[in-house]
């Protein structure tokens, strides 16, 4: 595949895809007449690369609730026809981690908390609003809901409406996306650390700065 045309801007890159011969594969974004669209693209010319574009685009649809656009393989968009920049980056990275030979299904809106015995539950309130609930909170172990809501807001650039409600600025439902982010929101620090390590890899430093 050659250089894609000038209107596309790279959103996120996986430099070595463990599920496809370590090819690099990326999500690009362009502004179209009816709103922003994303494109899964690789410069790899291997025979399996084209199939991987398709499987990754499918993963974005299932895990993030994106919809396909036109006939171009790998082209997707948010159903709200806006663009959630941080959420798109993180969705792409999570989708790339999914092993294509495993079943692909949207994540649940409730998960056991990794730090307490509570169950974290997301309750859709309509118009892009989601309440975060923590079942099983006690006087001794206070609700994790505010912390999870704050982490969701940070991970996906959501607005906070009170301590336990997050809001997509577009005002549309994004159930699959918020469910996907929920699993990562439980350990925000690990997400940020992973991103920091990713950003520093492949950067050549002068010998004086090397370990």
């Amino acid at each position: 595949m050659g250089v894609i045309d000038d209107r596309w801007r790279r959103v996120e890159l996986v430099p070595m895809d463990p599920h496809c011969s370590d090819i690099s594969i990326a999500l690009y974004r362009a502004e179209e007449a009816d709103g922003p669209v994303g494109l899964v693209h690789t410069y790899s010319t291997t025979s399996e690369a084209r199939a991987r574009v398709g499987s990754l685009a499918r993963a974005l649809q299932v895990l993030g609730g994106l919809e396909p656009v036109g006939e171009q393989p790998g082209c997707v968009r948010f159903v709200c026809r806006t663009w959630h920049a941080l959420a798109a980056k993180r969705l792409f990275l999570e989708a790339a981690k999914h092993n294509p030979v495993q079943p692909l299904e949207a994540r649940a809106l409730d998960v056991p908390d990794t730090r307490t015995a509570q169950t974290i539950r997301i309750e859709p309130l309509g118009a892009g609003r989601y309440a975060v609930r923590a079942d099983g909170a006690t006087d001794e172990v206070p609700s994790r809901a505010p912390a999870i809501a704050a982490a969701l807001a940070k991970l996906a650039e959501l607005e906070l409406a009170g301590d336990e409600v997050v809001v997509f600025p577009c005002g549309h439902e994004h159930d699959a996306l918020v469910a996907l982010m929920l699993t990562r929101a439980q350990n925000l620090r690990a997400v940020l650390r992973e991103e920091e390590m990713k950003a520093s890899r492949g950067v050549l430093v002068a010998p004086s700065a090397q370990q």
Binding site: L13, M16, I23, T42, S44, T45, T46
Partner: peptide, 11 residues
């Protein structure tokens, strides 16, 4: 870059 490496299969 990693993308150029893939483009010409020279990694």
């Amino acid at each position: 870059t990693v993308e150029l490496m893939d483009m010409v299969d020279a990694r």
